[in-house]
Design a protein around this nucleic acid. Structure first.
Length: 225
DNA sequence: ACTTGATCATAC
DNA sequence: GTATGATCAAGT
């Protein structure tokens, strides 16, 4: 099966139209159509769904630190959901650079940039990966009120790091945006600065959006503050 | 049932 | 090591 290369969408409208056209398709059908295999134990193919949909929609970001659609400033996020559309997992946003966290600001953060415009694509659960189906897409950008909440969560984490160090940060912090480990394993391998200014090693962290938030967003984008 | 902390694959 | 894409599985 040849790998199909799809040109990037020229506008957000075209991107949304393409995503809407995928609604109802199984991942198996999509996989066969563009020649991108999605097979095997889901524990060993964790990122494959995202890669499949990226290719199907013409995303170009790849593994570099850019938006999935750089010319549109749009980030693509798949969300595993129940048949009722309820998210089964949180959504990874980006890495938290723990070493520079004391100087980070929301306005210039990569987290804000990534969340400034997101194409959410629900992936409904199935018996196998190939039987999962694509749901209704949502092109979203935060309202000022929503961004205030996200910034407050961000600031809380950064303030905690600034005063007590990274080890004071817990996933229990944050109403919508939280910080959790993001690494190959639990080994401390990232550089951070302790409260006393000493250089310490810690587990790499990343920002995640709680399923509570994405669930509310998918249910009714207008209902959120 | 849901969340937190841990983990899997791949590119550079 | 960093980033990208996520889901697993133990703890509550």
């Amino acid at each position: 099966v040849a790998l199909t290369v799809i040109a990037p969408p020229r506008t957000k409208e075209e991107l949304l139209a393409r995503a809407s056209a995928l609604r109802g398709y199984t991942l198996g059908a999509l996989s066969d159509a563009i020649g991108f295999p999605v097979e095997g134990d889901s524990s060993r193919t964790k990122g494959k769904v995202g890669e499949l949909v990226e290719r199907a929609l013409g995303a170009t970001g790849g593994a570099s630190a850019t938006h999935d659609f750089p010319h549109l400033g749009v980030e693509l996020k798949t969300i595993p959901t129940s048949e009722q559309g309820k998210p089964r997992e949180s959504t990874y946003v980006c890495t938290l650079a723990v070493a520079e966290a004391d100087r980070a600001e929301w306005s210039t953060s990569w987290a804000r940039a990534k969340l400034s415009c997101v194409l959410w694509l629900p992936i409904v659960i199935g018996r196998t990966a190939r039987e999962r189906t694509i749901g209704a897409p949502l092109l979203w950008w935060p309202t000022p009120e929503q961004e205030n909440v996200l910034q407050a969560d961000f600031d809380e984490v950064m303030g905690t790091i600034g005063s007590g160090g990274i080890e004071g940060v817990t996933a229990r912090m944050g109403r919508w945006l939280q910080v959790r480990p993001k690494a190959r394993d639990g080994a401390p391998r990232a550089t951070a600065w302790g409260a006393d200014g000493a250089r310490i090693a810690t587990v790499p962290r990343g920002f995640y959006l709680r399923a509570l938030f994405t669930g509310a967003l998918l249910r009714d984008p207008e209902a959120l503050p």
